[in-house]
Simulated scan of single mutants.
Amino acid sequence: MLSNIGVPGLILILVLALIIFGPKKLPELGRSVGQTLREFKKSTKGLIDDEKETIETNSKITEETKDSLQK
Protein backbone atom coordinates (compact mmCIF):
# COMPACT_ATOMS: atom_id res chain seq x y z
CA MET A 1 0.00 0.00 0.00
CA LEU A 2 2.71 2.47 0.94
CA SER A 3 4.81 1.56 -2.10
CA ASN A 4 2.24 3.29 -4.34
CA ILE A 5 2.63 6.70 -2.67
CA GLY A 6 5.79 7.86 -4.41
CA VAL A 7 7.88 10.96 -3.79
CA PRO A 8 5.20 13.56 -4.63
CA GLY A 9 2.78 11.87 -2.25
CA LEU A 10 5.36 11.84 0.56
CA ILE A 11 6.10 15.52 0.00
CA LEU A 12 2.37 16.29 0.13
CA ILE A 13 1.98 14.34 3.38
CA LEU A 14 4.96 16.13 4.95
CA VAL A 15 3.65 19.55 3.92
CA LEU A 16 0.19 18.76 5.30
CA ALA A 17 1.70 17.52 8.56
CA LEU A 18 3.77 20.69 8.80
CA ILE A 19 0.70 22.85 8.24
CA ILE A 20 -1.49 20.90 10.68
CA PHE A 21 0.98 20.40 13.53
CA GLY A 22 3.36 23.29 13.01
CA PRO A 23 7.16 23.32 12.99
CA LYS A 24 7.50 23.17 16.79
CA LYS A 25 5.20 20.20 17.32
CA LEU A 26 6.46 18.09 14.40
CA PRO A 27 9.75 16.92 16.02
CA GLU A 28 7.87 15.97 19.21
CA LEU A 29 5.34 14.05 17.16
CA GLY A 30 8.13 12.25 15.28
CA ARG A 31 9.84 11.29 18.53
CA SER A 32 6.65 9.93 20.04
CA VAL A 33 5.84 7.92 16.92
CA GLY A 34 9.37 6.51 16.88
CA GLN A 35 9.17 5.60 20.56
CA THR A 36 5.80 3.92 20.04
CA LEU A 37 7.14 1.88 17.12
CA ARG A 38 10.22 0.90 19.15
CA GLU A 39 8.04 -0.31 22.05
CA PHE A 40 5.77 -2.21 19.66
CA LYS A 41 8.77 -3.89 18.04
CA LYS A 42 10.21 -4.81 21.44
CA SER A 43 6.92 -6.31 22.64
CA THR A 44 6.38 -8.34 19.47
CA LYS A 45 9.97 -9.61 19.69
CA GLY A 46 9.26 -10.67 23.26
CA LEU A 47 6.14 -12.53 22.16
CA ILE A 48 8.03 -14.28 19.38
CA ASP A 49 10.83 -15.27 21.78
CA ASP A 50 8.26 -16.64 24.25
CA GLU A 51 6.62 -18.66 21.49
CA LYS A 52 9.97 -20.08 20.34
CA GLU A 53 10.79 -21.03 23.94
CA THR A 54 7.43 -22.80 24.29
CA ILE A 55 7.98 -24.73 21.06
CA GLU A 56 11.48 -25.78 22.15
CA THR A 57 10.18 -26.91 25.56
CA ASN A 58 7.39 -28.90 23.94
CA SER A 59 9.90 -30.52 21.56
CA LYS A 60 12.12 -31.54 24.48
CA ILE A 61 9.15 -32.99 26.37
CA THR A 62 8.10 -34.90 23.26
CA GLU A 63 11.61 -36.32 22.80
CA GLU A 64 11.81 -37.32 26.47
CA THR A 65 8.42 -39.00 26.22
CA LYS A 66 9.48 -40.92 23.09
CA ASP A 67 12.67 -42.04 24.81
CA SER A 68 10.84 -43.20 27.94
CA LEU A 69 8.27 -45.11 25.88
CA GLN A 70 11.01 -46.91 23.91
CA LYS A 71 12.66 -48.17 27.11
Rank of each mutant, 00 (worst) to 15 (best):
S32V: 05
P27I: 07
I5C: 07
V33A: 15
E53R: 09
L12N: 10
G46H: 01
L18E: 12
R31N: 12
G6Q: 09
L29R: 11
D67H: 08
F40V: 15
V15T: 06
N58I: 00
I19S: 12
L47E: 06
K52V: 14
E28R: 13
G22F: 01
L26V: 10
K41F: 02
K52F: 04
G34C: 06
A17M: 13
M1K: 08
L2T: 12
Q70C: 10
S59V: 03
I55C: 04
G30L: 11
S43L: 09
L47Y: 00
T44S: 13
S43Y: 02
G22W: 00
E28V: 15
L29T: 12
E28T: 15
I20G: 06
T62Q: 05
T44A: 07
T65A: 14
P27M: 06
T62A: 11
G46W: 02
S32Y: 01
I5M: 12
K42E: 14
G22R: 01
A17D: 07
I48S: 07
G34W: 00
I61R: 04
E28H: 04
K71H: 08
S43K: 14
G34S: 07
K41P: 01
I13K: 12
G22N: 04
K45S: 13
S68N: 09
L18Y: 09
K42P: 02
E64G: 00
Q35K: 11
K25I: 07
I5A: 10
L37M: 12
E53C: 02
Q70H: 09
I61F: 03
T57M: 07
G46C: 04
L29G: 09
K45F: 00
V33H: 06
D50P: 03
K66D: 01
L47T: 06
S68I: 10
Q70S: 13
D49Y: 00
T65Y: 07
I5P: 09
K60F: 01
Q35P: 01
V33W: 04
I19A: 13
S43T: 13
S3R: 15
L14V: 11
K45C: 04
T36Y: 02
F40K: 15
E51C: 12
P27L: 05
E51L: 14
G46R: 07
S32C: 03
F21M: 15
K45V: 03
F40S: 15
K42R: 12
N4P: 09
S59P: 02
D50W: 01
I55W: 03
T44I: 15
N4V: 15
E51N: 11
L12D: 08
E63A: 05
L14W: 01
E28S: 15
T36R: 08
L69A: 09
I61L: 14
